[in-house]
Design a protein around this nucleic acid. Sequence first.
DNA 1: CTGACTTTGTGCACGCGTTCACAAGCGGTA
DNA 2: TACCGCTTGTGAACGCGTGCACAAAGTCAG
Lengths: 264, 264
Amino acid sequence: MAAQRGQRNGVGGDTPPAPTAAEVTTPIPRVAEVPAARERARAIPEAAVARLAVYLRVLSAMQEQGAGTVSSEELATAAGVNSAKLRKDLSYIGSYGTRGVGYEVAVLIEEIERILGLTRKHSVAVVGIGNLGHALANYGGFPGRGFPVSALFDVDPDLVGVPVGGLPVDHIDDISRVCAEREVSIGVIATPPPAAQTVCDRLVEAGVQCILNFAPVVLQVPDHVEVRKVDLAVELQVLSFHVARRADDAAATNGQQVNGMVVS
Amino acid sequence: MAAQRGQRNGVGGDTPPAPTAAEVTTPIPRVAEVPAARERARAIPEAAVARLAVYLRVLSAMQEQGAGTVSSEELATAAGVNSAKLRKDLSYIGSYGTRGVGYEVAVLIEEIERILGLTRKHSVAVVGIGNLGHALANYGGFPGRGFPVSALFDVDPDLVGVPVGGLPVDHIDDISRVCAEREVSIGVIATPPPAAQTVCDRLVEAGVQCILNFAPVVLQVPDHVEVRKVDLAVELQVLSFHVARRADDAAATNGQQVNGMVVS
DNA sequence: CTGACTTTGTGCACGCGTTCACAAGCGGTA
DNA sequence: TACCGCTTGTGAACGCGTGCACAAAGTCAG
């Protein structure tokens, strides 16, 4: 039963274990030192972390346009959330706004980057240089920079040594050595489904603790490894569900009387 | 059963005083037959829908291996969730299990496919034939079949007419006509960020009601359009957050702070 | 037919995340 | 300095999803 240690997905992920030890709600001014920041970081809901990344992108765009400050309302609209949620999210990382004015763009960018750990570079390894692997390797420094692709792997001997996106492919058997040498901290699995679990195990063995999985497979990993999943099939099927639901609604509204629709 | 209670009649939230198990049939009989399925479908939480897609994949694999029935425990383990959640999820679509035995694989597959709307084919259009667009077009029938890629679009005139994955690229100006002709129901945006909103608007104008967005942009769409987002940058940054958190933890437990923040 | 065993289906409670609403705080103005 | 309007930060309530635990319901052996 301890076998399952679910993956987190952007949308339907499992609820994290939630240590519950952090009681951040104390109005008492903390005299504590650094742990405050760490405790605070731990307490940020996963969903909020994902949104912080979005805020960061919006803020960067605003900064390029020369904006000095933003109100929560502006930023929220640009990020597609409501302002209350935005302020709550920002409150998780601290109080960097000025009441009556708003937030200083530069400050906010800096703080979010700090919390997200973007001050450090995170080397990425892509495993499986097929269609998707190619696309990922060619992304060039990966989106948003700070995530240099520094290793590519495949099983195909014909592919080994061939440069893809300016980086030569290594054989998967060298994964452990290469990952250690180049200090890879994030592994991206873009292999066919059957190979995914094996690749995952090898990555873990190589010391990689964060994995982004594109293969439509439920990966089994130790507790200390973080997995996020991007599953095209699931995304499409969820959309399909909505198409179907919508079609049903339309059929019902057009043809027959609908249950809850009409307030008679 | 309980699923029917989720009717959205004006004032929501008031849970009826829990009728005894005997009288759960026919809550408010107005149009007895079809609405049940539709109402039930509407009541399924989004997270559960995503998981149903995962169950479906696992079930298909099991069927190929000749399995006739599964228990909730087996299926749950294979899908990476706990059995209670799995049964709850399945209960949203009806009661297709046999107590003391389990679920018939074939039946479950059929029912999930029905709920997800996979009995119909959903034509997919991919807009933006860059690295990612290529990869998507070459996926070949798209993952899990039932989602044929039937249109490709790009702005680049040099690309128009060139076959990618066996399908010639159309110019984006023809999007409305082509989408209508080929009855596209799902649009996939794989363009650079600046083009995404425009492309989105055109897709919506062309009658596409479901969009899968790979561009790191918050799309503005009318209420009746469903958008799902796949954001690599966000995924990586969330992983980065966990790396950082983990590093902080390690540093703290070891002894001293490594991070260059304000330490007192 | 009866009784023991297995597995489903679900009522219920708990906890997390979202939303609301307002006090606190800051800048501008007279 | 005192006041006013604006925006942040957050306590508290709400709602939803998750997990638990058990009754209902079926199978199988004798």
